[in-house]
Design a protein around this nucleic acid. Structure first.
Lengths: 234, 234
DNA sequence: TCAAAAGTGTTCCTGGTACACCCATGA
DNA sequence: TCATGGGTGTACCAGGAACACTTTTGA
């Protein structure tokens, strides 16, 4: 239980961010090109070190704003800690991985740190620096589980959204097609998940019957959960 | 992304352990009495700092052996990271909380560090040092969720166990009574959860029909999950 | 012979899946 | 008028909950 703070090489604590968005029915993730060694020029998850008086959540929000231009209005969840001794060759770094779910990214402004950020479809997020491939895979699994038990899917949508938009979020993250009729009943039958939004109906893609608008409801957990077909099956 | 390792006060990284066991149908947790300031004499979760070349899991297993005498043969799961700046008054400490599920604790030997360890029913685990009340509550919730989707309950049982013993684990962790008949069918109907163990039947408590023995099966996830009554209801 | 726990059978009912069908809009 | 997506209805079926009942032991 004793600890001499100068006896050991210091640890650094970092946050790594898997920033997800859904565009045109495709799950995308934000990556940055590394500007320095190690792994210069390779793609990595955005992230950075905790400052002396920051919690992990605060550091995550700050780094997200700095590196990708996303400022507030997103959902942040903890994925896990990565603490293997040699995961960063420079020094001992313990990373706290988070997911950030954002409705839509403003295009990064040139000249800022955010200019190095790019969006890629999750399926094409190639080999990444450090152990970020593993972190990204864990984060994706984590988001899939969040959609089952929490209203996290609404974090991908604008403030008012149609049930079709919400369904496409689930389909993009889970990679499976869902029955629109059954999805509708499940969502509306889950108390607090969505509430009807006032205002006129909206045309989703131009064609088809205009859809009613909903907003995110007060629930933080989904009862019953929205299980995806693959779950009980595999 | 740059970081000068000597520019800031160093961080310390620790593991905190919520060590659970089920005795006589009661969920118990292992606590230690702090031998030094801060919070000298108060109860706390066992834990300690990561050594320079240890991962969190390695540190957790080492600390568990040192502080409670539990050596190997237990299940370890990650709960989350606690990173608020002032959670430890001595210095900046980021704690990685874990749960350890053990079938039965050997009585701690006097004269070792483990002598300060004690078991308490979870419900009576009073106010703890630091933010350990919150960590313990999170850990308990985490174990409850693990029982639904993983075979974690077998970690509380000896190598060969009866379905009645397994059911009492669920009842102790969830705090609810379960129908023995339905529980039995659910467990046996979940592939890979349990496999019949050779050998004679065992008397659980002396009275009643002798029960068949089972061992933990090869599954790491439960399909379908064992949902508890409170889940979909509340 | 009684209590207690294991184990089996059965009924009821909820909730999920699949799919047919109608509605409202743009092209 | 056709294609497209929103929205409703419904039949089927698996799985969970509740509970009666038999079996096998110790006291």
């Amino acid at each position: 239980m004793t600890y001499d703070k100068h006896r050991y090489e210091p640890f650094a604590v970092a946050v790594d961010l898997a920033v997800f968005t859904v565009r045109e029915g495709v799950l995308e993730v934000v990556l940055v090109e590394r500007g320095e060694e190690p792994h210069r020029g390779r793609l990595a998850l955005p992230g950075g070190f905790l400052r002396p008086r920051e919690s992990a959540a605060e550091a995550a929000r700050r780094e997200l704003a700095e590196e990708t231009g996303v400022a507030g209005g997103f959902r942040l969840d903890e994925v896990g800690a990565y603490s293997e001794p040699d995961r960063d060759p420079r020094m001992r770094v313990v990373s706290l991985a988070h997911t950030a779910l954002v409705p839509h990214l403003p295009e990064p402004r040139a000249g800022t740190d955010a200019a190095r950020a790019l969006r890629l479809p999750y399926a094409e997020a190639g080999p990444l620096a450090f152990d970020h491939d593993r972190i990204l895979a864990d984060a994706h699994r984590h988001v899939g589980a969040l959609l089952e038990t929490t209203p996290a899917a609404t974090a991908f949508c604008p403030p008012a959204f149609t049930l079709g938009e919400l369904r496409r979020v689930y389909e993009a993250v889970w990679g499976t097609a869902l029955d629109p009729a059954n999805f509708r009943r499940k969502v509306l039958g889950t108390p607090g998940f969505t509430v009807p939004a006032p205002g006129p109906a909206r045309l989703t893609g131009g064609r088809g019957k205009p859809a009613a608008l909903y907003r995110a409801g007060p629930a933080t957990r989904l009862h019953p959960p929205l299980t995806h077909p693959e779950g009980p099956r595999s």
